[in-house]
Design a binder for these strands. Structure first.
Length: 508
RNA sequence: GCAGCCGUAGCUCAGCUGGUUAGAGCGCCUGACUGUGGAUCAGGAGGUCGCAGGUUCGAAUCCCGCCGGCUGUACCA
């Protein structure tokens, strides 16, 4: 094969060998994580269904104009999405959320759908953004929406279902908080502060940054602008400010300082700042009604609060805006960090009109599955050590007993116990090593000795691991072999019972 | 996107101001201890020094570009 020109051949082959790499921002999901994610999604969907939401699935690819990301000037989609062009010149893209496809779906099937239409949907979405720790270019969302209902009751329903989803995941009350604000209240504030239309975007962006930049940072952004510190050597980047006058800025900051002490308290604090503007009055009225509905449902301020700093999606929401934040802190290296937002949503009454020309009210929310899962791990609310692991391994030490090994595996499987039959090569030692590494709980082992007694041996691998750390066994292999820590034998017909017993020790 | 820092074995890193065959620990594989994970012992595999150029007699080490990672910032439907 390589006699003729070995070095050249080798070199060539090496050059062609591909790197087993992944495109930037993408990742594999190993069994443990996948199992946890599926379980989490299952629980949340169960809540969704209990609230009368029915499932819907739409394709990963949509026309760019459907997604509303077409640049009007250039003949090109906006950045931030994965887009490409078909042969006929049409631009398509991977969806970047589940709401735009829903709007398209509703517009397309408007006649058949009875109008308050509620659905839930889960699946991956893609965004071409800078990946960060815990933030990828492909991630999963879990959405609920109610289309065709403009009532505050619909908004309350969304809030309610979010709170219950959190509790279905066993996030303790007090560790999560549904924060609510209202877009029209913000509009009223902007009007009161005499913020010109062309500055509303920068102003809202600035208000949204309170938690990260603090009051002084926001003040700078509303005024002359802000330079970030960068690193020690660098200058940092300059963010242009909104250039507002000092009294405008103070009006806005006074709003941010509105107490979140009770929803009623928020309303009273905010009222003087926005009252008298059409938007402000309408927004306040809706929030007041929302407060009443939440009360009727028994959703107190331990679960749902009004909060002036919730701004969210800028050119998008038209009414109530919602954000679920996790309030506990988590150790991250030396620092403690707030976990932050795991879900968001709100009312978007203009999205479907893009297609139909007819205003169709809609409200909904989206849970960020991966962020929430990270939170559950931090909370210790998920079994990370057994997720994705098979409990039982039937070892195959003696070729002549093949028939028996298979029968045992079958028996365990029939009893509903996930069982792997060892198919690899190697002696028992190797098989135990494998069992240890892969995290099995029980190993079934039998050779001539057991067979002659009509028994099988079961090994509690976790107990064995524990025992192997003990003093006596530490250095003495002979003792190790004599004691076979964690191992015991049962009559062959008690195989399933014996395995169950060991599994029960670990609640499996 | 912008700015700064970083990129040496699977992992964590060493390799001084450029100088011969690039190292360690852990991990991995094989074997021994006669049917057992751990411990111990004996061997072994594994590195295009992120990639591609340039400077040089000579580069992992200096310069440029690209890719990737981290941090901050911008954008975020």
């Amino acid at each position: 094969m390589s006699e003729a020109h070995p070095p050249a051949k080798k070199k060539q082959k090496k050059r062609k060998r591909p790197d087993p790499r992944l495109p930037r921002g993408f990742r594999d999901l190993p069994p443990g994580d996948l199992v946890l994610r599926r379980e989490m999604i299952r629980r949340v969907c169960e809540v969704y269904e209990r609230y009368g939401f029915t499932p819907l699935e739409t394709p990963a690819v949509e026309y760019v104009e459907t997604l509303g990301k077409f640049l009007p000037e250039a003949d090109q989609p906006d950045g931030g999405i994965f887009a490409w062009r078909y042969d006929d010149g049409e631009w398509v893209a991977l969806r970047y959320d589940l709401t735009a496809p829903l709007s398209r779906y509703v517009a397309k099937n408007f006649q058949e759908l009875g109008m308050p239409f509620r659905r839930y949907q889960t699946g991956p979405v893609w965004r071409l953004e800078k990946p960060e720790p815990g933030r990828y270019r492909e991630f999963v969302q879990l959405d609920i929406d109610i289309v065709g209902a403009g009532s505050v009751l619909a908004d309350a329903e969304v809030i309610d279902v979010l709170a219950h989803a959190m509790e279905a995941l066993e996030i303790p009350r007090g560790s999560y908080l549904v924060c609510v604000n209202h877009r029209r209240v913000l509009n009223g504030l902007l009007e009161r502060a005499a913020v010109p239309p062309e500055k509303t975007l920068p102003v809202l962006r600035a208000l949204d940054k309170l938690d990260r930049l603090g009051l002084d940072g926001v003040r700078a952004l509303l005024g002359p602008g802000r330079r970030d510190q960068g690193s020690a050597a660098g200058e940092g980047d300059f963010t242009p400010g909104a250039d507002l006058a000092p009294e405008q800025i103070e009006t806005l900051l006074a709003f941010l300082a509105a107490p979140a002490e009770g929803r009623r308290g928020y309303l009273e604090a905010v009222r003087p700042l926005v009252e008298g503007t059409p938007d402000g009055d309408a927004g306040l009225a809706e929030l007041a009604e929302l407060d009443a509905i939440l009360d009727e449902r028994g959703l107190g301020t331990d679960r749902v609060v009004f909060n002036p700093t919730v701004v969210r999606g800028l050119g998008y929401y038209t009414g109530a805006v919602v954000e679920v934040v996790l309030t506990f802190e988590v150790e991250e290296g030396a620092e403690r960090r707030r976990f932050g937002s795991v879900a968001g949503g709100g009312r978007y009454d203009d999205l479907i009109a893009r297609f139909t020309g007819q205003k169709v009210p809609a409200t909904g929310a989206s849970i960020g599955v991966d962020r929430l899962l990270a939170a559950l791990k931090a909370l210790g609310k998920v079994e990370t050590d057994t997720a994705g692991k098979v409990p039982v391994l039937v070892t195959t030490m003696d070729r002549s007993l093949r028939r028996e090994y298979q029968a045992w595996a079958d028996e365990l499987r029939a009893a509903g116990i996930a069982t792997e039959l060892y198919c690899g090569s190697g002696n028992v030692g190797k098989q135990f090593k494998y069992a240890d590494r892969r995290g099995f709980t029980v190993a079934v082992v039998a050779g001539g000795d057991e067979m002659s007694r009509g028994e099988v041996s079961l090994k509690d691998l976790r107990l064995g691991k524990e025992l192997s750390r003990s003093e006596e066994l530490a250095a003495d292999r002979k003792q190790w072999l004599e004691q076979l820590p964690g191992q015991f034998s049962v009559p062959r017909e008690r195989l399933v019972d014996g395995v169950r017993e060991v599994l029960a020790r670990y609640g499996r």
